[in-house]
Design a protein around this nucleic acid. Sequence first.
DNA 1: GAAATTTAGGATAAAAAAGTCCTCATAAAA
DNA 2: TTTTATGAGGACTTTTTTATCCTAAATTTC
Lengths: 155, 155
Amino acid sequence: MSFLYSKSSEYIIRALVYLSNIDKEEYIMIKSISEHTNIPHPFLSKIFQKLAAKKWIISKKGKRGGVKLIADSSKLTLMDIIEWSDGVKDFSQCIFGDRECGDIIPKHDNSVWYPEKQSNCILYDKCNRFKAAIIDFFSNTTISEFKEHNSLFRQ
Amino acid sequence: MSFLYSKSSEYIIRALVYLSNIDKEEYIMIKSISEHTNIPHPFLSKIFQKLAAKKWIISKKGKRGGVKLIADSSKLTLMDIIEWSDGVKDFSQCIFGDRECGDIIPKHDNSVWYPEKQSNCILYDKCNRFKAAIIDFFSNTTISEFKEHNSLFRQ
DNA sequence: GAAATTTAGGATAAAAAAGTCCTCATAAAA
DNA sequence: TTTTATGAGGACTTTTTTATCCTAAATTTC
Ligand code: SF4
Ligand code: SF4
């Protein structure tokens, strides 16, 4: 089902949701996370290097080391993660082409999004309801909403 | 904006929309289509080979040759194209993971889609509204809806 | 029939995404 | 202080996607 974002983004989401369900005092081994979330260990290590640079997690080397979530999971949205990992998506562009759709500046500040100005394309309303649904879902779903949602992971 | 399907699918959609706006009696050169739709010519040629095998278009070699849409553009949906080009997406799978979301069999027979049975995941309602929006848009948008929609293309 | 044009088809290349491996640095525990 | 565990970081490999090239076949026009 990951045709909405890269495999990397999907992994980040899974890993961070997993971390957010863990006691914040503990450091969790990447190896353990990779096993529970079914993400290849070397690949996940790379991801955590970048997540640490981004300061969404901190890591500790050596015995009893691992990683720990420090970002506020109730403020961390899927949009934050996907845009950071895959790049910012320009919703003012046409879904099907390499051209502008209209004078649209998406606002995804955690509020439902509506276009500011309509273009004169036949499909404008239909496309924008669709775009709005995507922006709404991604920018209004936070990592903390998955709390206790262990069914995502292997036990 | 093409993070919903592959570049190939985007190209196919653009090319077929372009063709559907053309007098059905004419054969159109792939070179001309590639220029108007801004798709690399050799790549588009490959695409049309497969489209011809799929019988959505027919082609003619030689002088005054080219391609012509024969599929019924009012029945040809974005879902048809994307699933054929990128592979069938299983909407019963979790958006974020490699597991089932629930006993969901999506029906995208051009009717709005609703889940048959709820899983017990916390995010179920939210995710399924989102999935439904995607399935709805893709399976209820046809190539013919872009008729006269020349703003997609170079003049 | 010859010349010109246009798609078909196979081979190949380039770029991007996904995944792996090895060594080093660091920290805890023995 | 030594041993052991664990992430950091760089180089590398594989796979998938996107894109190109070349020759053959077909069709029209001359
Ligand atoms: S309305 Fe839809 S089809 Fe028209 S330009 Fe915007 S995104 Fe493209
Ligand atoms: S409801 Fe959403 S998060 Fe839960 S299993 Fe289904 S797709 Fe995954």
